[in-house]
Simulated scan of single mutants.
Amino acid sequence: MATFNEIIKKHPLVLVDFSATWCGPCQMLAPILQDLKTHFGEEISIVKIDVDKNNALASSYRVQGVPTMILFKAGEQVWRQSGVLPLQDLVATVTSFR
């Protein structure tokens, strides 16, 4: 299995969703992220990270609340947001970093 660093460097745009199974807003965000993937197709890779199972990774990115989304472009963090955003806001954000 590829490491996290390999994944964020392999794809031009990677949106990482730090979430938890017990988190209500995380569950609300899931279908929005599916729609985002449908909108952009192969232009973006979306990776879901369970903070309870990957605590060290979440800590290394200073994730203090869920959901927290981090957008990577060519392996570099370019955007970060905590909480749920509507689809149109996420589309605008991703479009600005294409």
Rank of each mutant, 00 (worst) to 15 (best):
D52S: 10
V16P: 05
F97A: 07
W79K: 07
C26L: 13
S19W: 08
V78M: 09
A74E: 13
L85K: 12
Q81T: 01
K9F: 04
S19F: 07
I8Q: 04
W79M: 01
E43V: 04
A74Y: 15
K73R: 15
W22R: 09
S45G: 08
I49K: 05
Q27E: 12
L71G: 02
A74M: 11
V66C: 11
V63R: 01
E42K: 03
V63S: 00
V51F: 06
I7E: 04
A74T: 02
P67F: 07
G24Y: 10
I44P: 02
G75V: 01
E6Y: 12
M28N: 13
F40A: 06
K53S: 14
K53W: 00
V91Y: 08
D50A: 11
V51A: 09
T95V: 04
Q77P: 08
T68M: 03
V16Q: 01
L29V: 04
S45Y: 14
Y61W: 08
R62C: 10
I49Q: 02
V14F: 07
K48I: 05
G83P: 13
K10E: 11
I70H: 02
G24S: 11
F18M: 03
S19R: 03
I32M: 08
E42S: 14
V91R: 11
T93S: 04
A56P: 11
A2K: 10
S96N: 11
T21W: 13
D89I: 02
I44H: 03
A30F: 13
K53Y: 07
N5V: 14
S45H: 15
L85C: 12
F18S: 00
I32E: 04
S19C: 13
L57D: 05
D17Q: 09
L29C: 11
Q27D: 03
L71A: 03
G65Q: 13
T38I: 13
E76A: 09
S45C: 09
V14T: 05
K48T: 10
S45M: 12
I32S: 10
F4Y: 11
C26A: 13
L36K: 08
G83N: 06
T93Y: 05
E42H: 10
R62H: 15
E6M: 04
G75C: 06
V66Y: 00
I44R: 00
G65S: 15
S82I: 08
Y61G: 04
Q64S: 12
I7N: 10
K9T: 07
P86W: 05
M69Y: 06
I8H: 02
S59H: 12
T38V: 14
Q77I: 03
P12W: 00
V66R: 01
S60F: 10
E43F: 11
A30M: 14
V66L: 09
Q88H: 15
L57Y: 06
A58R: 00
A20R: 03
E6H: 09
